[in-house]
């Protein structure tokens, strides 16, 4: 399982990549693997205000639908429009081409509530059994 070191993680298996005031958001390798072949993703709209840990997107496989929660509070500044036609990008490249959206996060302190890579790795291993 791939857990890049430069990202922050949630217990619901979202990741955030911080670039200045912007955070890129997606779901982790663990999440895409347990969902299986992803068939559809319903993304937030640009301009939407999100709250940390609140519902922001839905990701679907053939027989399951999972809610995705915002890792941070802030405003959505752009979405990955490629996912509409190519949801398989989430399976193929969860941390890069398969990102969900970008946001301008509003509260630096919220980052403290997220896990770093070693902590997330440990958390996922704990879920295994």
């Amino acid at each position: 399982m791939n857990v890049p070191g430069n990202l922050l993680y949630t217990k619901d298996h979202e990741w955030a990549r911080i670039e200045g005031k912007t955070a890129y958001v997606g779901i982790t390798d663990y999440a895409q693997h347990s969902l299986g072949d992803i068939t559809f993703v319903d993304l937030p709209k640009a301009g939407e205000e999100l709250k940390q840990s609140s519902f922001c997107a839905t990701v679907e496989s053939v027989k399951a639908a999972s809610d995705v929660y915002a890792p941070l509070s802030g405003k959505v500044t752009g979405v990955n429009s490629k996912l509409a036609q190519n949801p398989e990008l989430i399976n193929q490249s969860p941390y890069d081409q398969g990102y969900f959206f970008m946001m301008e996060f509003s509260n630096e302190a919220e980052k403290a509530k997220l896990m770093d890579a070693p902590a997330y790795q440990k958390y996922v291993e704990g879920l295994a059994e």
């Binding site: 068939t39 559809f40 496989s61 053939v62 027989k63 399951a64 639908a65």
Partner: peptide, 12 residues
């Protein structure tokens, strides 16, 4: 498109 349906999405 079964993820719309009650047997998967239940109350949603």
């Amino acid at each position: 498109l079964q993820t719309r349906e009650q047997h998967i999405r239940r109350e949603k």
